[in-house]
């Protein structure tokens, strides 16, 4: 083998070697105190840049709290959280481009904004306080409005829309800035099947163009499999994390009490029926759910 052939073979090896993606979110031993029990405990989580990560769990499992912890809106009682390698502060949130869909709450009728003002709010901080919204931004917003059939209502007061439309408006606001980090709290909750399809298409399009990191929650995990790379089940602590293609549809009947298929090289993590669940060594107040392999 000549030197040139050897060098090119080596280079090929180097190129084939996986460059680990940067970490967008890192949570280490996260614990959030609640009253009387912990809202979250034992949360160890890494979400890579450009990844779409789904969190599934029943109501009251701490999904929204986890999102607030990631965004720095709620402090951890113990543990460490990093957002793009920094502690999440308001300064970091100002610097980053973040889109956020809160869990649905009705917009009050007296909110002083038209539909357009409300959506533009998502852009203002990202594009700076003094800069006007560019033509490209406007075109993108028009596309979003058209996709969700709201393009003819931009001058109507936002408080007078139906709850379903208000949810769509909040989705558009979250997407408007083409954010680097998109956090969606139960985005599929009030959408009809057609709306779900459109949202999945919009998210896929955003991720393809901007390599955005997307974190979303749901009580029903099935729609998440269509878009998420990885999905975790949360019930105060993370019960399991798996790649979407490892999860079969039967799991969604009771995700907290079932585990997805795992790779064969990880048998030591399998549940041992004889010895029962491992005892937790910390002050975790919630009982482990009964888990079994499917």
């Amino acid at each position: 083998m000549s030197d040139i052939e050897l060098l090119s073979a080596l280079n090929e090896d180097w190129f084939e070697e996986d460059i680990p993606p940067a970490e967008a979110v890192v949570l280490h031993d996260g614990y959030v105190k609640g009253s009387p029990d912990a809202i979250l405990y034992d949360i160890n989580l890494t979400i890579n840049e450009g990844e779409c990560f789904g969190i599934v769990g029943p109501g009251g499992a701490g999904k929204t709290t986890l999102l607030h912890v990631i965004l720095g809106l709620k402090q951890l009682s113990e543990g460490k959280v990093e957002l793009f390698s920094s502690f999440p502060t308001s300064r970091l949130r100002r610097k980053l481009s973040i889109g956020y869909l809160p869990q649905f709450t009705e917009i009050q009728p007296n909110v002083p904004a038209t539909l357009m003002d409300y959506i533009l709010m998502g852009l203002r901080n990202v594009r700076g306080p003094f800069r006007r919204v560019s033509r490209m931004d406007m075109l993108y917003m028009e596309n979003l409005l058209m996709a969700l059939h709201l393009e003819h209502k931009i001058n109507l007061p936002v408080g007078y829309f139906s709850p379903g439309d208000q949810h769509k408006i909040q989705i558009i606001r979250a997407l408007a800035a083409e954010p680097k980090l998109l956090v969606l709290d139960e985005p599929f909750q009030r959408l009809d099947p057609q709306g779900r399809k459109v949202l999945i298409r919009l998210l896929a399009d955003l991720q393809r163009r901007t390599n955005a990191t997307i974190i979303m929650t749901a009580q029903d995990g099935e729609p998440l499999t269509a878009i998420c790379d990885n999905i975790a089940c949360l019930n105060h602590s993370l019960l399991w994390t798996a790649e979407s293609d490892q999860i079969n549809s039967e799991i969604w009947a009771d995700p907290c009490n079932c585990l997805p298929l795992q790779d064969e090289e990880e048998p030591e993590e399998m549940y041992d029926f004889e010895s029962g669940p491992e005892e937790r060594n910390d002050n975790t107040p919630h009982n482990n759910p009964i888990q079994f392999w499917r």
Binding site: L71, K95, L96, I98, R124
Partner: peptide, 17 residues
């Protein structure tokens, strides 16, 4: 603009930093 943002949706304004 920040004042408008907190008048329209204070929680979202907080998320934006």
């Amino acid at each position: 603009k920040p004042l408008c943002a907190i008048c329209i949706d204070a929680d979202y304004a907080k998320v934006l930093g």
